[in-house]
Structures are given as structure tokens and as C-alpha cells.
């Protein structure tokens, strides 16, 4: 992992809590929360799909070295925000920056950001190792990283098998291996625990904490609160496209409530 963010991370942590509970509309502090130490900076982001407003005026910032959970019910806009952040979708308003630049303007982006999308994006006929070799060429990563990444996620023995024979959990591990190819300083994960068994979830949690301890920054979306509460130190809760809470986990549950109680109070019951 890159450790170049360490100094920034320390600075961010010592400058106090950079995320606030205020809603984005009455939050004049977006500028304050945005500093050179912010790895991710999302400001007033809006995205519509036809009539559906998937994200409306979403703002948050991630300091280096933090593990932030992007929480919300199904359809709340989590994936939309991540898709815009990763340059796969264009916002209608606002911006999402990584180290001050749009994803599509990053030079060799996989050296900066590793992304794990939930959709399981493979050619099922290609084997796991060849999948990574293809991406390593495209991302300008040395081919030796392929076997290293396979070993990190525990897929070395299945590397020569077609992805169609993989279980859901193995596919998740392969996606994570792809995200790690470029030794990025930021990991963006969309529902990464989907399909992982208890052991897999535990492994992932340990991995993410270690990644952050090494100075890496993590943004992880989830609708499964139990897995999040033990992994993240900051949370951004979205509901129906709006940010309804933005805080450190400790602050959010400060008055004795559990994350689940706070979450249920803030989010709507209807599926969006």
C-alpha cells in the first residue's frame, strides 16, 4: 500500500472531526471540511435518471486514513454517488473529486483508486488470472502484481479456473484483487460483503482496517448495519438521494443510541 498519505492523515485527524451532522443544504462547512487532506471531495452532487432523482445535493468529504460507511436503504442513491465518483456516470450538478481531480482526469487511476462494484463484472469464460492480467495491462501495472493480488485475496489456487465456476464470494474476492492491482491509496467498495460468508466478512473487515491503518482511505457502501458498525469510523447516511447524516461513528452514537436506532430514525421505511 502507498504510505504517502500518512502525513496528511495525521494532519486530518489532529484537525478535529472533519465531518459534521448538519444537512448539506444548511451546511456552510463543506468548504471547511474540504482541505488538501481530503482524498474524496463530493460537493452538491445531483444525478437524475429521467424523472427519478437518484442523488440530490450530496456533499461529503473523506480525510486520508479514514474508513467511511456510506449507508442507506436500497435505492437511496449510494451506488449512484459511487458511480459518479468513479467516472462511470456524469452528474447533472456538482462534482465528485479524488485528490482534487475528476476520476476521468486521473492519470493511471487504478494507481490511486481501487473500486469494487457489486455487479460482478467479468467475462464468465475467462479465468481469474487472465481477467487480472487484462486489467493490469490496461492499468499500466506490472504483471507480477497479478499473482500478488491473487495471493492477498486467497484466490491463488482457483486462478486458472473460468470465472463462471466461481462462487459469489470468490467473485467478490476477484473484484477486490482487481482493485488492489495498482496498490491504490483509496478503496471504493459497493456492498462488498454481499455473498461473503461469515469468515469472508471477518476477513474483509480485518483487511479494510489494515488497509486504513497503513494510511489508506476507504469508502464502503452498505445496507447491512451490523457489518458496518464494526468496520467504519465515519458514516454518511443517505436516504432518497439526500444526505441525512454525516458524522464520526463515535459522535453519531454518543448519546447512548445504537447505530441501528439512529439509522432507522433517519431513513424512510418505504423502499425508494
Amino acid at each position: 500500500m502507498r504510505r504517502s498519505m500518512r502525513a496528511d492523515e495525521t494532519a486530518a485527524r489532529s484537525s478535529g472531526n472533519p465531518v459534521s451532522l448538519d444537512g448539506p443544504a444548511r451546511d456552510p462547512a463543506v468548504a471547511r471540511t474540504t482541505s488538501a487532506a481530503d482524498v474524496v471531495h463530493v460537493a452538491s452532487l445531483s444525478k437524475r435518471y429521467g424523472e427519478v432523482v437518484a442523488a440530490d445535493d450530496v456533499s461529503f468529504a473523506l480525510p486520508a486514513g479514514s474508513v467511511t460507511g456510506l449507508l442507506g436503504p436500497n435505492g437511496a442513491g449510494k451506488t449512484t454517488v459511487l458511480r459518479v465518483l468513479l467516472g462511470l456516470a456524469e452528474p447533472h450538478k456538482g462534482e465528485a473529486l479524488i485528490l482534487g481531480r475528476r476520476y476521468r482526469d486521473l492519470d493511471r487511476p487504478m494507481h490511486v483508486v481501487g473500486a469494487v462494484l457489486e455487479s460482478g463484472d467479468f467475462d464468465p469464460g475467462r479465468n481469474g488470472r487472465d481477467h487480472l492480467r487484462v486489467l493490469a495491462f490496461a492499468a499500466d501495472v506490472p504483471q507480477r502484481r497479478v499473482d500478488e493480488a491473487l495471493a492477498v485475496v486467497g484466490l491463488a489456487r482457483a486462478a486458472k479456473r473460468a470465472v463462471r465456476t466461481y462462487s459469489l464470494g470468490m467473485r467478490q474476492r476477484l473484484t477486490l484483487a482487481a482493485a488492489l492491482l495498482g496498490s491504490p491509496q483509496l478503496l471504493v467498495l459497493d456492498e462488498p460483503a454481499n455473498g461473503l460468508d461469515a469468515k469472508g466478512v471477518h476477513w474483509l473487515r480485518t483487511f479494510l482496517r489494515g488497509f486504513a491503518a497503513d494510511g489508506g482511505t476507504v469508502l464502503v457502501s452498505s445496507h447491512v448495519l451490523a457489518e458496518i458498525a464494526q468496520t467504519v469510523d465515519h458514516v454518511v447516511i443517505v436516504d432518497r438521494g439526500h444526505v441525512v447524516a454525516r458524522s464520526s461513528l463515535a459522535e453519531l452514537v454518543a448519546d447512548g443510541k445504537t447505530l441501528e436506532e439512529v439509522y432507522l430514525a433517519l431513513t424512510s421505511e418505504d423502499a425508494a
Partner: peptide, 18 residues
């Protein structure tokens, strides 16, 4: 179209956003 169908287009464009 094969990549659009199986989703490989996403990692492809993540690796090469241009």
C-alpha cells in the same frame, strides 16, 4: 457489446477512463 452485456465494460473503463 459483450462487455456491455457481462459488465466487464465497467472495470475496463475504470482502468482506462479515457
Amino acid at each position: 457489446t459483450g462487455e456491455l452485456r457481462n459488465g466487464l465494460v465497467r472495470p475496463t473503463f475504470l482502468a482506462t477512463p479515457r
